[in-house]
Design a protein around this nucleic acid. Sequence first.
DNA 1: GCTTACCGTAAGTCATGACTTACGATCTGG
DNA 2: CCAGATCGTAAGTCATGACTTACGGTAAGC
Lengths: 109, 109
Amino acid sequence: MTYDLALAALADPTRRQVFERLAAGPRSVGAIASGLPVSRPAVSQHLKVLRAAGLVADRAQGTRRLYFIDRGGLAALRAWLDRFWDDSLAAFQAEVERPATTRKKGNQP
Amino acid sequence: MTYDLALAALADPTRRQVFERLAAGPRSVGAIASGLPVSRPAVSQHLKVLRAAGLVADRAQGTRRLYFIDRGGLAALRAWLDRFWDDSLAAFQAEVERPATTRKKGNQP
DNA sequence: GCTTACCGTAAGTCATGACTTACGATCTGG
DNA sequence: CCAGATCGTAAGTCATGACTTACGGTAAGC
């Protein structure tokens, strides 16, 4: 459903670091920012994107705000990938072992 | 392993369209570009990124070049997501049903 | 061999977004 | 009630990357 937002959100390396820190357990914004090479407002903006993608959720706790993983975004992404995995199986297996020259990955000079 | 390249590649909407067209079966560059709102060189550049991410592979066929899905990139992405799915389970379930107010998704004005 | 078709790359333009500092809002403790 | 702590947002800067047109290179057909 919103797999596109989840993809765009997780494409950024800093945002992935924020997300991975949350996978270890709920954290406050300041706790996430400390140790990261960016400022705390930057982390707030990243969390806003992650929340819009359904990847994290938050809960007020006093003057602080605890963020934690929301499985919804991950589930949407997994569903999209799995649909792709199945759809591309026939198209891929028709080409996988072919006698012709097949260049893959990297751009060799 | 190279899940970061796959994420960055699939984050772009045009590149996703290219990728989805390939999921239906192998296509030449011109066949992919026709119907897309971008030029053929743009498609070539997108295919270069997709190939570097291990998401597609190509094979020369005469003066044309057939591109098709490479499951390697999708597998790397799935593996990364699944690892996350497991790691975040405990952290998530500790917060999922909590009596406190929990705001999720979207940025309501 | 020459033309045509198909493709990759170079160079340049322009918008997007990731960051910063500055400010205002909210909640808690004394 | 005031001081401090924690956070979100506004405004502005700067790099990245998605696109264009132009060009060169290779393979097939006549």
